[in-house]
């Protein structure tokens, strides 16, 4: 709008007022001390007449703070405002501490108006950069995530009872050889170079919490699933008639697995463990 320049002068005159100043404000923090193995006790922060130690909990810097480096050849990296500042031992001596100051002025309507008028007079457009380089390329992950699947995990929010046990898995899709990895908070277990779409992790310790299963094939296709590991007591108990029935262990477990499958989608993986025994 060409007419904007005509507005500026009367507004600037009308809106002339005092600037805001704040005192004792947080202006930045100590980022790091170099050399890296230097003790934090070599830094002292003077604030309101008190000496404060530099600790992980006390890194913030306020307007008016003074910093002292008590040893030679140290460099303290600070962030003041949004700028990085380096302070050396020679700039923060006990007899001449380094003074922390607010980085600049807080913009006001009056200041912005005056800056805008200055830019107009200089013929600058403060707002937009007229030329900008852009990239017209895409960056994508090459492998799809849905080509492989584990049917027992296909529906619901999979749950499995924790403890030391065998974990049986079978899947479909993809191209052999496969790699399957189980990650838990405590670490990960993997089985590599699998020729068939099935594997049993024998005697694996399933800890309560989250377990992440990653299945990959030779073409780089990947299937990732998260399973909640719950206490064994949360697994629906075997019904009493089944427990007392005169059946061999394999049949009893298979029937229990089938029954578990009917207890909601979430128990599909657990059911698979019993049906296959």
């Amino acid at each position: 709008m060409k007419t904007r320049s005509l507005y500026s002068l009367p507004i600037a005159v009308l809106l002339a007022a005092s600037q805001l100043h704040a005192a004792g404000v947080k202006v930045g923090w100590i980022d790091s001390l170099q050399p890296a193995n230097t003790g934090m006790d070599t830094v002292r922060i003077e604030r309101d007449g008190k000496n404060l130690p530099y600790t992980p909990a006390n890194r913030m810097l306020y307007d008016g703070d003074r910093i002292v480096l008590t040893r030679d050849n140290l460099t303290l990296k600070l962030v003041i405002g949004e700028k990085n500042v380096q302070v050396t031992s020679s700039q923060a001596r006990p007899d001449a501490p380094y003074q922390i100051k607010q980085a600049g002025e807080i913009p006001t309507v009056q200041k912005n108006l005056l800056d805008w008028m200055g830019d107009k007079l200089k013929g600058k457009s403060a707002q937009r950069n007229p030329v900008k380089t852009i990239s017209a390329s895409a960056r994508n992950q090459s492998s799809g995530a849905h080509a492989l699947s584990i049917p027992a995990l296909a529906v619901g929010n999979p749950l499995i009872a924790g403890g030391t046990r065998d974990l049986k898995l079978s899947w479909q899709g993809g191209t052999a050889p496969y790699r399957i990895t189980i990650k838990q908070k405590t670490g990960q277990t993997a089985a590599d170079n699998l020729g068939a779409p099935a594997h049993t992790f024998s005697g694996i310790v399933l800890q309560e919490g989250t377990l992440q299963l990653t299945l990959e094939d030779s073409q780089g296709k990947r299937y990732i699933e998260t399973i909640r590991v719950v206490p064994a007591a949360q697994r629906p108990a075997m019904p009493l008639p089944l427990k007392e029935a005169r059946l061999d262990e394999t049949t009893r477990n298979r029937l229990y697995g089938e029954w578990l499958q009917e207890q909601g989608n979430n128990w599909g993986l657990e059911a698979m463990q019993w049906m296959g025994q």
């Binding site: 805001l20 704040a22 004792g24 404000v25 947080k26 202006v27 405002g81 949004e82 607010q102 980085a103 600049g104 002025e105 807080i106 913009p107 800056d115």
Partner: peptide, 23 residues
């Protein structure tokens, strides 16, 4: 981004002047 010589406004928060934005 701030222009040279500018700083962020502060607001009183939990009894302490705190920048409106900290990056």
């Amino acid at each position: 981004q701030l222009k040279p010589g500018e700083s962020r406004p502060q607001i009183e928060w939990n009894g302490t002047p705190t920048p409106l934005l900290t990056k």
